[in-house]
C-alpha cells in the first residue's frame, strides 16, 4: 500500500496468480475492454511471440475521488509457465492482495495445486504472511468439458472466509465479481492498517 497525502492517492497492488493458461491475462483483458477508458491505463502485456506472458501484464484503474482520496488499483498478472518461477516471485513483491485463478479442468488439478503451493512459498519468501494476505479464488473455465466439481476445488483452495467465484473469463462471467471482491478485501485491509 502506498499513500501520498499530498496528492491524496491511495495506491494498492493486486496480483493475479495461477498456473499456466488458467486465464489470468484474459481476466485483465476483459477488465480493460469493459472499463471506462478515462479510468484505466493502457494494458501492458509483456509476452513472447507465442502470445504467452513472459514477465507480467499490467493495468491500472484510477477511480474518482472518494471522501477526499483517489484510489488507484494496480493489477498485475504473473507468467504461468513453470520456467518463469523467479519472475512470478518478483511480481508478487509488494502485493496487497492476490487473486488465485484456478483452471477448473480435471486434468489441470495437479498444476493448480502446484501453483497454489508455490504462491504460498513465494509469499513467505518475500516476508509476506500468506495466512493474512487478502485472497480471492476464481474457478475459471467452468464452461469447458469435465470441470472438477466445485466442492473439490473449494476444499483444495478455499478457506472458510475466502471469497470464491465461478468464472468463464473469455466471456467475462465472474470477472468483475472477482475483481470487486479483491478490491473490497484490500481496501478493508488498508482500513485496518491506517
Amino acid at each position: 500500500m502506498f499513500i501520498n497525502w499530498k496528492l491524496r492517492e491511495l495506491n494498492l497492488k493486486i496480483v493475479y496468480y495461477g498456473p499456466a493458461l488458467s486465464g489470468k491475462t484474459t481476466n485483465l483483458q476483459y477488465i480493460y475492454a469493459r472499463t471506462n477508458p478515462k479510468l484505466r491505463s493502457e494494458l501492458v502485456s509483456l509476452k513472447t511471440q507465442e502470445d504467452r506472458t513472459i514477465f507480467f501484464d499490467f493495468l491500472q484503474l484510477e477511480l474518482g475521488e472518494i471522501k477526499g482520496l483517489k484510489p488507484k488499483f494496480n493489477l498485475y498478472t504473473v507468467p504461468g509457465q513453470v520456467m518463469y518461477e523467479a519472475t512470478r516471485r518478483l511480481v508478487l513483491q509488494g502485493a496487497d492482495g492476490v487473486v488465485f485463478v484456478v483452471d477448473s479442468q480435471m486434468n489441470r488439478l495437479a498444476d493448480n495445486i502446484h501453483a497454489f503451493k508455490m504462491m504460498h512459498r513465494h509469499l513467505l519468501g518475500l516476508g509476506l504472511d500468506p495466512q493474512r494476505m487478502p485472497c480471492v479464488v476464481q474457478f475459471n473455465k467452468r464452461d469447458l468439458p469435465n470441470p472438477a466439481p466445485i466442492p473439490v476445488l473449494q476444499r483444495l483452495f478455499v478457506s472458510d472466509s475466502t471469497p470464491w467465484f465461478e468464472s468463464v473469463a473469455t466471456e467475462g462471467v465472474g470477472v468483475f465479481e472477482t475483481l470487486k471482491a479483491a478490491i473490497g478485501l484490500v481496501v478493508s485491509m488498508a482500513q485496518q492498517q491506517l
Binding site: K6, L7, A95, K117, H120, L128, Q131, M133, S159
Partner: peptide, 23 residues
C-alpha cells in the same frame, strides 16, 4: 496440507508520504 489463505491482518510494507515529505 495445502496452505490456507484468509483475509485479515497486516501485510506488505506500507509506504505513507506526508505532504511535507512529498514536497
Amino acid at each position: 496440507p495445502l496452505p490456507v489463505m484468509s483475509p485479515s491482518g497486516e501485510l506488505a510494507p506500507t509506504l505513507v508520504l506526508s505532504v511535507e515529505q512529498a514536497e
